[in-house]
Write a protein that binds this DNA or RNA. Sequence first.
DNA 1: TCGCGGTTGACAATGATTCTCATTCTCAGT
DNA 2: ACTGAGAATGAGAATCATTGTCAACCGCGA
Lengths: 135, 135
Amino acid sequence: MTSTEPSGGLRPTPQRQAVLDALSGVDDFRSAQEVHELLAGEGSGVGLATVYRALALYADHGLVDVLRREDGEAIYRRCSETHHHHLVCRTCGATVEVEGPAVEKWTSAIAAEHGFSDLSHTLEIVGTCADCQGR
Amino acid sequence: MTSTEPSGGLRPTPQRQAVLDALSGVDDFRSAQEVHELLAGEGSGVGLATVYRALALYADHGLVDVLRREDGEAIYRRCSETHHHHLVCRTCGATVEVEGPAVEKWTSAIAAEHGFSDLSHTLEIVGTCADCQGR
DNA sequence: TCGCGGTTGACAATGATTCTCATTCTCAGT
DNA sequence: ACTGAGAATGAGAATCATTGTCAACCGCGA
């Protein structure tokens, strides 16, 4: 049971590395399309379909986080593998990772109260960050 | 400042009523497409574009809740106008509305700590309900 | 009754995501 | 190092939710 492989125990192809590197190089969320453009701009020539496949694969294995923009477009971010939430600025897109033991406990309690098990949850906070408030 | 009109102070056209009625008739989330089919099945003949417009309008006015399915499709539900969250069964789709003062406070505190203002947040809990656990 | 702004419906357009399939590459075993 | 089997890739077509366009329509006040 390999638990902490460099790339999550997945076959390390150049294309997948490129996708992961692209995500690692920025600290906010990017859509699959944006990652593709980013790679194209570097001459990587990685196909769009491959970007989608790689992102889905990594998301499956917990190496990247997936969220949805308000318009439904999926956005991805390389992140720590521990459970956490995001605080996102609606103007500039800046993202802060936050942990919330209080929330974890609350959700568990509520779910148990209603007989739910095998839980997962999503919490996103959207707001206007300090820098964008005057604008 | 009309605060509790029957239809949120919006012009009550037959089409909009039909959309709202369709949503009121079920107690879980439905996509715009599903609402449209539902209406078509009753012979209402309401256009798809109109369904989208009505849903967007009601969502804007807080008469319906909007979420995203995992595949990104938007789903809507008629619900109370107070802020609340949802506990959803991943197997049967059953939905429970829950309130979480603790969560509200926590998000405000975290956001303030990082200088964010004008907040909104989304929290969804997905799990397996008691009825679906043995299956 | 007439005119007007808001609403509707049919259909085209958009855009993200997925599928297809022939080609290419990786990995394990020899 | 060589080879076969199966996974991965790229290009483009296909899918599908959602939005835009625009002419026809409706109810309401003048």
